[in-house]
Design a protein around this nucleic acid. Structure first.
Length: 223
DNA sequence: GGCCAGGACACCA
DNA sequence: TGGTGTCATGGC
């Protein structure tokens, strides 16, 4: 994919869906919690879980550290995989306390490479979750790849569908200027498109709400 | 009733 | 290193 292709697709998505203003959260910590809770889970369910955490006043590193894993699991139950995710949140909190004295700002101030590596060292934080935190909590320019990215760009013919996370990320980051606001909106628009249309599920999205995206791909993708 | 959703990891060969 | 099983709720 050339810079021209990626820019053109971005413009089509922007025109269709408008600015997304991501991440839907009030604080960096809420971004991190949301990023872990949304693993393989519909965002709607995550919203319910986060509302529960707010209601119980557990949405801060200190409060969430103090509460037991079993209570935490009960509160985040609507997000699914609640035992696993409670454990993962606890892993992150332990990491934050041991390495950064519980200070989130110190962690998020680190430069992009070390920050990403540090996050990946936490059990339960993989590439997508780490990159979501880097981009949306630390506001540093990294491209987040998710299932929608892989599916949509595969359907359009720009990806084979078997590329690794890192390979797909490299494609986007080589072709696009490294701007936080651009990466923020691009990923959010991909998710908006994936959620809102049949593009993600149909081999050719001729019935989706953004036929021009397909038409563009028909003309541009390598044969 | 089955499929899927803004993944990650343990386990095994 | 790659493939497979596991984790689980809620909406359609």
């Amino acid at each position: 994919m050339s810079p021209k292709d990626l820019t053109a697709i971005y413009r089509l998505l922007w025109k269709q869906y408008g600015p997304q203003h991501w991440w839907p959260a009030e604080t960096p910590f809420e971004v991190i919690v949301g990023a872990i809770l949304t693993q393989n889970t519909a965002w709607k369910n995550v919203e319910t879980a986060i509302q529960g955490l707010k209601k119980k006043r557990l949405l801060s590193p200190r409060k969430m550290t103090e509460v037991s894993s079993s209570v935490l699991a009960r509160v985040i139950r609507p997000a699914g995989y609640f035992n696993v995710k409670a454990r993962r949140l606890k892993h992150f909190l332990l990491f934050l306390r041991q390495r950064y004295k519980g200070d989130l700002k110190t962690l998020l101030k680190r430069s992009i490479g070390p920050l990403r590596e540090a996050l990946l060292s936490v059990n339960g934080i993989g590439p997508e979750t780490a990159d979501s935190i880097v981009l949306y909590a630390a506001h540093k320019p990294i491209f987040v790849v998710d299932a929608y990215t892989r599916r949509i760009f595969s359907r359009l013919g720009f990806l084979g569908g078997e590329e690794s996370y890192g390979e797909i990320q490299a494609v986007f980051m080589k072709a696009l200027p490294k701007q936080t606001t651009l990466f923020n909106e691009y990923h959010a628009l991909i998710v908006a498109h994936g959620k809102n249309t049949c593009a993600a599920r149909h081999p050719r999205c001729s019935r989706c709400s953004l036929e021009r995206l397909c038409e563009y791909a028909e003309g541009r993708r390598p044969s």
